[in-house]
Design a protein around this nucleic acid. Structure first.
Lengths: 350, 350
DNA sequence: ATGAAAGCGCTAACAA
DNA sequence: TTGTTAGCGCTTTCAT
């Protein structure tokens, strides 16, 4: 009769029902040291009987909320699915849960709102936030950043090997005979040199590879016009040019999808190659059939969550993890064909 | 000098800095009644100076966390993107934030973990949880359920007009001349009659339409073998049958994508029509070009969030919102062709 | 209009 | 091993 209508059952109710102290109940629910089997049993059964669930708010106020926050830049970024899957996988079996906070706007405020005591630790994909600000944030709450090529001291990082991945793409396209290769990527800010974002690296490596192949004058960089706008328009403009590229290297699969759309709409599906990055689940769809670099998104997510748990257990020194990449060649890697059929279409007959 | 290293600034720090009471600061940050302009100004500037951010945990313990939880069954369900977008839209301008909790397993525990004081209200897509259990949950925390065709008294619902949407699909296919129409949907539990899930309704209406058209004996229902497994395998089996359907009505776009994959892999792209549901962003991709029913996912998400806010402001009586549907006809709606080219392929030449 | 004080549910010292 | 006690940071009566 201690449960008043409308009020949820608290630790005191359990303690009373089990005839023990609240501290004892607290220890049981946290699996803490110093409880006799007998007491544990009595408390457990009282918990079951009353349907007790500890208040996250109260726990958070005093210690941990047992929640990890995953901040992602957009609700619909397909890559984040892999990250989330990995993170959930990594925390399964621990008392921790993962919650997702899509930014779709200023990342600072999303991150802060997570840090406001909602979660015990943060995994974030925020390429543009200031490193110093992050160090500060990391001083208040454990942080693991995804996709940052810096080596900060206050927080951990998990990245893919963008250099190797991009080189694999370029070599693949060169091998196919492509020379006029364009790069379709994110708006300026995300790709500015020195920012250390994956997209900045990919752009830089693209340039390097073109230069090394003596194709520096064929470099073409196109961008999504606006952040959170599809890249379709930019891709359409790219393929409409008189010096149309024979291959488009997209910054990631979502952009590649838009490139494929533009290429298909222009009826150039077998004349313009498209390569993506992330190897999201759609890449292998037979109608998409997109060549893409797998950078082990699930593993990255799992690693990030694991690192966070380590920090929550006391690790102080930073860790920086680099995931390996693997190029998946698919149908979108068409060979170049000469525009003016002067070679008699030999390439196509092969 | 009141800010000790490593400790975040609290309401007391602000109060002290502004030379007022903590209660006063509390009122200011909540925009509550009873603060003079002068005091408000002083407090505001103290907040700015110290970079004060209220602790969500402490607020939640005492009142509200100003967080709304959105529970979705899977991380990668494309439809949830629309819901989330709408929900974020609806709370923008309010002090509330939306956080996402993907279930990918037992929904009960995900919902409870949200209800454990993390959020002030819950929006959930959980077709299978017990209505009585939900009523109980709703007694402790405001709840809006998406995609439940019941009319509960304790919580609100937001649904699409599955009946009309499915009828539109069937009529469309009949008009194209299809008779052998199959339905590819979720595993048994989600589509069992009487559950009132959208998929149960869609299945039922599919059967009704077939029967009304005198095609009851051509009814073919196929399912994803396992929950959280792609429907590709089931779709492949469907198109490999000797009595292969000329059209496949998919339970939603994700399933339709798998159906398209199987159809494409079998080289039947222009012989088997595929129709989806939800009109997710991929449907309009030229390489997918999927006919699909738009059920206003963004609007549903916005409506759900708005209802939740209403409840937080005191509404008690339940509301039930039904979104309208609109069929988008695209290239995947091919006409039927007779298998044994006895009609001389007239349909194709047309 | 403002402040004092109690307490939300829990955990972490410390005592017993 | 178990219980007592003092807060965590905030909101909310209730005085003033």
């Amino acid at each position: 009769m201690s449960i008043r209508k409308g009020r949820s059952v608290t630790i005191s109710d359990v303690a009373e029902a089990a005839g023990v102290s609240r501290a004892a109940v607290s220890k049981v629910i946290r699996d803490a040291y110093g409880v006799s089997p007998g007491m544990r049993a009595r408390v457990q059964s009282a918990i079951e009987q009353l349907g007790y669930r500890p208040s996250v708010a109260a726990r958070a106020l005093r210690g941990s909320s047992y929640r990890l926050g995953l901040e992602v830049p957009h609700v619909n970024a397909r890559f984040m699915t892999q990250i989330m899957t990995g993170a959930k996988q990594a925390v399964s079996g621990t008392p921790y849960q993962v919650i997702l906070a899509p930014a779709d706007g200023p990342e600072y405020s999303t991150l802060e709102s997570l840090a406001d005591g909602l979660v015990d630790g943060i995994i974030a994909v925020s390429p543009l936030v200031d490193p110093a600000w992050l160090e500060d944030l990391a001083g208040r709450i454990p942080v693991v950043m995804l996709g940052r090529h810096d080596t900060p001291s206050g927080y951990d990082t998990v990245i893919g090997d963008d250099r190797t991945g991009t080189r694999a793409i370029m070599r693949h396209l060169f091998d196919l005979g492509h020379r006029r290769i364009a790069h379709l990527t994110e708006p300026e800010p995300v790709t500015a040199p020195g920012t250390g974002t994956p997209h900045a690296i990919r752009l830089q490596v693209y340039r390097e590879c073109m230069a090394e192949a003596g194709l520096g004058d064929l470099v073409q960089v196109a961008r999504r016009h606006d952040d959170s706008e599809p890249a379709r328009q930019a891709a359409a403009e790219l393929v409409a040019r008189h010096d149309r590229p024979t291959a488009i290297v997209a910054g990631h699969d979502d952009i590649a999808l838009d490139a494929l759309a533009a290429v298909a709409a222009a009826g150039l599906r077998d004349r313009v190659a498209v390569v993506g990055y992330d190897n999201t689940d759609l890449a292998e769809h037979p109608l998409i059939d997109l060549t893409s670099v797998d950078q082990q998104g699930v593993e990255m997510g799992a690693e990030a969550a694991t690192m966070l748990l380590e920090r929550l257990q006391g690790r102080i020194e930073p860790r920086h993890y680099v995931a390996t990449t693997h190029l998946h060649v698919r149908g979108s890697s068409v060979r170049p064909t000469s525009d003016r059929a002067e070679t008699g279409g030999r390439d196509q007959l092969e």
